[in-house]
């Protein structure tokens, strides 16, 4: 699936995976986030993702003129989850909007684990 930006001079087509990667990388830079997990798992198993697979922890939902981003993450123990979550959401939204020009409607954060080490 792709995201299309229509322009008088031609169309820009961005692959969903590209947006996912952008979101994943900006999320990873966020303070308090220590890992991403695969969204494919339905229960129980949490698979920590290695660097190159990070975009598997991101789901991009394309709507008419905006996108919604779902993130599946692990947070460090001892941080205030609500605040870390707010930070991640604003940081990802800011970065994706800045780099793609797309309108990010929502960033949903699913906290799947806490790292205690």
């Amino acid at each position: 699936m792709t995201i299309k930006i229509v322009n008088a001079l031609g169309d820009i087509v961005i692959d969903r995976n590209v947006v996912a990667k952008l979101a994943a990388v900006s999320a990873m830079e966020c303070y308090g986030l220590v890992g991403m997990v695969s969204k494919n798992t339905t229960s129980g198993l949490i698979k920590i993702l290695k660097n190159e697979h990070l975009n598997r922890g991101v789901e991009i939902i394309v709507e008419e003129d905006s996108i919604t981003i779902d993130l599946y993450v692990i947070i460090q123990f001892g941080t205030k989850i609500s605040v870390v979550a707010e930070n991640i959401i604003s940081q990802v939204k800011f970065n994706v909007e800045k780099q793609t020009g797309l309108n990010v409607n929502k960033v949903n954060l699913n906290i799947e684990g806490v790292k205690t080490k």
Partner: peptide, 18 residues
């Protein structure tokens, strides 16, 4: 600082104090 952490810098500060 953990309970009152605000923003990115606040969270980092709370970890520094921790």
């Amino acid at each position: 600082s953990l309970m009152g952490a605000r923003g990115n810098s606040g969270v980092i500060l709370s970890q520094i104090f921790r």
